[in-house]
């Protein structure tokens, strides 16, 4: 007998999936924005040549890069309250874990990008009397970011998919809704196929956007 796909249950529950997709998108946007901003700060701290500041930043990066993100989310949701008595919502715990994890990876991208800029660029700026901040903003970062775009795209795609882990601590994002729907309807094939398509539709435009950004930055200079 050939399996007869049936999408009626999915169509009936499309609002659940839409809500899930919205939460996925929210987690993604929050963690990416935070990760880029905090990663920039951490990356600058690690390259500024102040050991007292660079060391804690390095420790932070290594802790979050060398432990599974799954463990991090679960830790913030179940262990953190034991330690502090503060119970955060599943969404907050997931967002926090993804933010910190992403910032650690972005810090490494920024660090590598900043260090890839030739020492002569620093010297030329300093010889003009530019301060560290002005040099970073006007000379180093504009050149470094250009080289970093592909790496950031990669990180963004990874993060988009990583949000599915939040389903483990019952954040009602796309993956969680899918598992619920699949369990209730006994239609795993239809449900998880549709979910995969939705992930693709959500994530791929971001990738396209970054290609365009790359091309635009590449045209100058």
């Amino acid at each position: 007998m050939i399996y007869q796909p049936d999408f009626t249950d999915i169509v009936a529950n499309v609002d659940l999936l839409a809500r899930g997709a919205w939460l996925t998108l929210s987690l993604w946007a929050i963690a990416y924005a935070f990760g880029l901003a905090a990663g920039l700060v951490l990356g600058m701290v690690r390259t500024a040549g102040q050991p007292l500041m660079a060391w804690p930043a390095a420790a932070y990066v290594e802790v979050f890069r060398n432990t599974p993100v799954l463990v991090q989310l679960v830790w913030f949701y179940y262990a953190f309250p034991v330690l502090t008595g503060l119970q955060m919502s599943a969404f907050t715990a997931a967002a926090l874990g993804l933010c910190l994890n992403t910032s650690a990876y972005c810090a490494e991208i920024f660090r590598g990008g900043i260090r890839s800029i030739d020492a002569g660029q620093w010297e030329a700026g300093r010889a003009l009397g530019m301060t560290y901040g002005a040099l970073m903003r006007r000379v180093v970062l504009p050149q470094a970011v250009r080289r970093m775009v592909p790496a950031f795209t990669n990180r963004g795609i990874e993060l988009g998919k990583m949000t599915a882990i939040a389903s483990v601590i019952a954040v009602h994002e796309l993956m969680y809704e899918a598992r619920l729907l699949s369990a209730n309807t006994y239609r795993p094939l239809e449900v998880f196929t549709v979910i995969a398509v939705i992930y693709f539709v959500v994530i791929y435009p971001g990738t396209l956007l970054s290609y365009r950004l790359e091309a635009r930055l590449g045209r100058r200079g």
């Binding site: 030739d118 002569g120 660029q121 010297e123 010889a127 009397g129 301060t131 000379v139």
Partner: peptide, 21 residues
Amino acid sequence: LAALRRRVGMVFQSFNLFPHM
């Protein structure tokens, strides 16, 4: 040092122009 460098110009062997400008 930045204040001093504003008043002392330097030209390098390897030019060191800013390539994105």
